[in-house]
């Protein structure tokens, strides 16, 4: 087996607030092969977005990566000087955000914004930057790409705007794209289109994808493998089909049960009782224990790793 594209070991990202140290990412480890699509699933506040930002070295103060290692093609990213990280961002590792209306600058033309992204990594003159931008827009399925370069973001529909953001991420044909809920702000029909196209583009270019989402259904149609995050930790991981068919962790089970099923209209959705715990005051032991139907006295201790690296869960009482 070749070396993975990305190898994250025991990543810890902390926010030092007045109320104390908030451990948003608390010892996360995973690997990603070249061209692989990885789903990163969890509720709001589970640390999935912070994990994504950590990969690009874009954690805003007061947050910082407190420990662990992120190895990208054998190069250690934790502790890399900001200038070196900037060279990687956009060129080798790109990112797409949730709301394209907020990410694109409303007062610059799409072409101007794309030219800035091209020229951030050399990219030659304005002419060459424009050509590259037009080709990238055409590749994500924006019709009449050359004229659309002179349009402003508000002149695009929501779906088209997200395509522009994707085109910016694809400009330098990066090895890895971190996508932070990029379809959440879109209409359902557009979501499906964008998902299919992202998958095709990633396959075509051999780009690896970390797809962050709260939506298991989205991830299941896209990803090869899935990581389930809860309270800053990965509580379950494995190939997407196995995790969906036979989840090991009660939390994953809960997430699956709360998906609306097509075949049973009118039925009440199952919910996971309670809400995500405050990361400032985590109880000792398993953080999911207060909401878990299988919890008992043992859960006051830190949960053990069940299974192997390829198919694991962090639980005292895994489902089998």
């Amino acid at each position: 087996m070749t070396a993975p594209l990305l190898d994250v070991r025991d990543l810890r990202t902390e926010f030092h607030t007045r109320a104390g140290v908030l451990r948003a990412v608390n010892g996360v480890s995973f690997t990603l092969a070249r061209g692989e699509i990885l789903g990163l699933v969890g509720e709001s506040g589970s640390g999935k977005s912070v994990t994504g930002f950590s990969l690009l070295g874009l954690v805003d103060p007061p947050g910082r990566i407190a420990g662990g290692s992120i190895s990208f093609e054998g190069q250690e990213l934790v502790g890399l000087p900001p200038a070196r990280l900037r060279e990687l961002r956009g060129k080798r590792i790109a990112m797409i955000f949730q709301d394209p209306a907020a990410t694109l600058n409303p007062v610059l033309t799409v072409g101007a914004q794309m030219a800035l992204a091209v020229q951030a990594h050399g990219g030659g003159g304005d002419r060459a930057a424009r050509d590259l931008a037009a080709r990238s827009l055409a590749r994500v399925g924006i019709p009449d790409a050359v004229t659309r370069l002179d349009a402003y973001p508000h002149e695009f529909s929501g779906g088209m705007r997200q395509r522009v953001a994707i085109a910016i991420a694809l400009l330098h044909q990066p090895d890895l794209i971190v996508a932070d809920e990029p379809t959440t702000a879109l209409d359902v029909s557009i979501q499906a289109q964008i998902l299919a196209e992202m998958k095709a583009l990633a396959r075509e270019n051999g780009t690896a994808l970390v797809w962050i989402s709260h939506d298991l259904a989205t991830v299941s149609s896209l990803a090869d493998r899935v990581l389930v995050m809860y309270a800053g930790r990965i509580v379950e991981s494995g190939p997407v089909a196995q995790v969906l068919r036979a989840p090991l962790h009660p939390y994953t089970r809960g997430l699956l049960d709360s998906l609306p099923a097509m075949g049973r209209p009118g039925e009440m959705l199952a919910q996971i009782p309670g809400s995500t715990p405050s990361l400032l005051s985590l109880p000792p032991g398993c953080p999911f224990a207060p909401r878990c139907p299988r919890a008992d006295a043992a859960c006051a201790q830190d949960p053990p790793v069940v299974g192997t690296e390829g198919r694991m869960a962090l639980c005292h009482h895994p489902l089998t």
Partner: peptide, 20 residues
């Protein structure tokens, strides 16, 4: 998010301040 996205695209802080 505009600034975050510009950073993610690898723009330098100076370019972000001046152009965005």
């Amino acid at each position: 998010d505009t600034v975050k996205f510009a950073r993610a695209a690898g723009l330098s802080e100076w370019t972000i301040l001046r152009r965005h």
